[in-house]
Design a protein around this nucleic acid. Structure first.
Lengths: 199, 199
DNA sequence: CGCGGCATTGAGGTGCATCAAAGACAGTGG
DNA sequence: CCACTGTCTTTGATGCACCTCAATGCCGCG
């Protein structure tokens, strides 16, 4: 019923507008979900990691694009079969409702971030979320790995890549973080960072 | 099992951080859901109307505030009983999953709007959405009623009330809309409006 | 070594916020 | 019926946070 697949960086699992034929479960790697405007502006709506589920929020067509940022391994299920299976196993349906509920809460948090937070608050919030998420997955929350580029962080936070970069150096100068290299951030003062994240 | 209640404008159905004791179904009126930062900045995450359901996305505490904008009539259900009922009636659970899925898609749309759209695109998108929603509810999509203030629209679109006001007059000057009064908008050129909404 | 992709930094511009004032409108009470 | 009040909206003047454009630096890889 399921297939194990591998996607290289920059490959699409599916594209906005495609018929939603499959759902996925991520075994390893990082995936981003995004929506785009016709002129190329895009908004990344979430980063997904091992254990995460892809396939909610589709109607007649996929509502967003799913792209591998790193090498990614997934289990792929035909959508119709998955739905039949779900109908026959209410606890799966219940679990999916929990997932949807959690994602909805995260989406609302992100709306607050995008609509009302400053660049500093956005970047600080982002780093804290990644750290908390790593802890929730049983990994270390410090240092934090950033398996995505500055441009992708910008597309997630509603900023340009330059502003993300400038804000990170500003956080470094303020003593909140330290960069081991461009994709590994040590949170030197989580307290400062949480304060800067603004609630 | 349920109670019918009435809330006057500016009353809260519940507040961010409350224990989530109830779920609601709106019988009439307009409700907004919002999240706030400690300094008072807030983001409205959605406007709800007759027929809509309130109660998703709660964990240990309510993740957002629900406030009546107009006189509102609701059916209120104790959360625990509702969940028990849901477990015993899988089709209710399935329906709730559909609702969550739809809301998630709407949330992703809103992230694109908040992260990447200009003020003009935001206001135009907002008016079109309200119009489409009215049609989906079997009411006329033109003219569109705005049962919320400019400040509330601003808190929804990530703008200030002044920018919302300026943008509306600009849309009027461009011939896309006309204001019968401050809370009734006629879409004089839906085509122009959709073009300005950007995708 | 040299190339390509990504990150950082700088200089300058702009879209929206902020601050301020005046206009529109509904409700209230004399 | 109208003055009065409070709330909401519109419009104007100014400032700033972030964007844009451009140059340079960094690093892995063939």
């Amino acid at each position: 019923m399921s297939v194990k697949l591998r996607f290289e960086p920059r490959r699409y699992l599916f594209d906005e507008g495609d018929a939603p034929r499959y759902v996925f479960s991520i075994a390893s790697g990082t995936v981003c979900l995004s929506k785009a405007l016709s002129d190329g502006r895009r908004q990344i709506t979430g980063f997904l990691f091992a254990g995460d589920f892809i396939g909610l929020a589709h109607g007649e067509t996929c509502a967003y694009t799913a792209e591998a940022l790193t090498p990614v391994e997934v289990c792929r299920f035909p959508r119709d079969r998955f739905e039949r299976y779900m109908t026959e196993h209410p606890h799966v349906e219940r679990r999916l409702l929990q997932i949807a509920s959690t994602e909805l809460a995260a989406a609302q948090d992100q709306m607050l971030l995008l609509g009302r937070k400053t660049a500093t608050e956005r970047v600080a919030s982002f780093l804290i979320r990644l750290s908390d998420r790593a802890v929730a997955h049983g990994r270390s929350g410090n240092p934090v790995c950033l398996p995505m580029t500055r441009a992708e962080i910008g597309d997630y936070l509603g900023l340009t890549l330059e502003t993300v970069s400038r804000t990170m150096t500003q956080l470094r100068k303020r003593g909140a973080i330290d960069l081991d290299n461009t994709s590994v951030v040590r949170l030197t003062s989580e307290e400062t960072l949480r304060r800067l994240a603004g609630v």
